[in-house]
């Protein structure tokens, strides 16, 4: 409890000086809080690790293909899109449009985000287009992840 009171006093003192940012000094207040949060996360990981140990299936066998095979969950959307896209465009086979093109586009666009979005405002109410695109992209990722799960090989 003592720590919380010290933090508040600190904040109030700084409020009298409007020029300065209100905040906690990095040491010891901010660091102490960080350490508490870190202990909570480390504790949760320990709990998960002891309740659900990492699995180890049968040894690799290059001659028996198991079914179904899934990639790691964070690659499922790529896998899902590949399964989803079955159309050739002209001479370009579907497999290439299903992976190469979307991956180059996806990472290219991600890197360029700060240079595409020239709107200087960071007020979410004044960034309707960026927010709408963000939500559509997230829904798309969820959809293709789902598609990848349902259509596992």
């Amino acid at each position: 409890m003592a720590i919380i009171e010290v933090e508040k006093k600190q904040a109030e003192e700084q409020q009298k000086e409007p020029v300065r940012v209100r905040g906690l000094p990095f040491f010891p207040h901010f660091l102490l809080r960080e350490v508490v949060v870190m202990c909570l996360i480390a504790g949760s990981l320990l709990l998960l690790a002891s309740l659900y140990p990492a699995s180890l299936l049968k040894p690799a066998d290059p001659f028996t293909t198991p079914t179904p095979i899934y990639p790691e969950w964070y690659f499922l959307y790529v896998f899902g899109f590949l399964k989803f896209w079955t159309y050739d465009i002209g001479p370009i086979p579907a497999k290439i449009i299903g992976v190469t093109v979307p991956m180059i586009l996806w990472y290219g666009l991600l890197i360029l985000v700060p240079f595409i979005d020239r709107n200087p405002s960071s007020d979410i109410r004044k960034r309707k287009i960026a927010v709408a695109i963000g939500i559509i992209v997230l829904l798309g990722l969820l959809f293709f992840t789902y598609y990848g799960i349902v259509h596992g090989e």
């Binding site: 299936l57 040894p59 690799a60 198991p66 790529v78 992976v99």
Partner: peptide
């Protein structure tokens, strides 16, 4: 870990 899952998931990944 070289189990069935790791081998075949890598097969798909490198295939892609």
């Amino acid at each position: 870990p070289w189990d069935q899952l790791s081998f075949w998931a890598t097969k798909i990944g490198t295939g892609i």
